[in-house]
């Protein structure tokens, strides 16, 4: 028998429609428990790099915006370093790398105010600037992981070890946000011909 780890991972369950209560209570009128909502501010001081917004909408299989999702992003700083002890390098002390927002209850739009990440060079590989996006919502049984790349990084995207491994090249554009001034706009499609690429973390 092949080796089996001692324990099994706990099963995921949907975050449900009331995820805001637990993860961002201040946005749902519960103001007295936590001072601020976790992940609401990514830039905490004079962070290096270009300040940009990432603005996106998630669409369900009927083309309707998903208005009750919680979305998290995780990214490197302007030098391509993750603000995590697991990275091992020194990250920008004024940047958290972690953002958490909810879809607007009327439009489904969510927006992160962040720094454009640098390319990440580790173990002899260079990854194009990108953001990990993680989506939890009612009707999503296991949170969905995708990435957001940037349309003004054509050369870096071409050379990215992750993007270049994707066989169905026609699906790659589902991972690339379009620049509009200081805002990168992006659409996530849960189903349909433009279904976004999701991956096993």
């Amino acid at each position: 028998m092949p080796y089996a780890p001692k324990l099994k991972e706990s099963a995921s369950q949907t975050a449900g429609p009331y995820v805001h209560i637990g993860c961002m209570p201040n946005t749902t009128g519960i103001h007295t428990i936590f001072d601020t909502d976790l992940g609401s501010t990514m830039i905490t001081g004079d962070a290096k790099g270009e300040r940009v917004n990432i603005e996106a909408v998630i669409f369900d299989g009927s083309g309707t915006p998903v208005k009750d999702a919680m979305v998290e992003i995780w990214q490197a700083d302007a030098n391509g370093v993750f603000p995590s002890p697991e990275d091992g390098r020194e990250a920008d002390p004024h940047f958290t790398g972690f953002g958490r927002q909810h879809a607007d209850h009327d439009t489904g739009v969510f927006k992160f105010e962040t720094i454009k990440p640098g390319a990440v060079s580790v173990d002899g590989k260079t990854y194009a600037p990108h953001v990990l996006m993680w989506i939890a919502a009612r009707g999503i049984n296991l949170a969905l992981a995708t990435r957001v790349y940037f349309d003004d990084e054509t050369d870096a995207n071409e050379a990215d070890p992750f993007l270049s491994r994707i066989e169905l090249k026609s699906r790659v554009p589902t991972l690339i946000a379009k620049r509009d001034g200081n805002t990168y706009r992006h659409e996530i499609h849960l189903q349909g011909p433009d279904e976004t690429i999701f991956f096993d973390l």
Partner: peptide, 23 residues
Amino acid sequence: SVLRSPQKAPIGFDGSPTEFTGP
């Protein structure tokens, strides 16, 4: 879940520093 479930297979890969780190 019917309209919120991706229908294409997720792409598996070994991960990179992005997934091996976290807040």
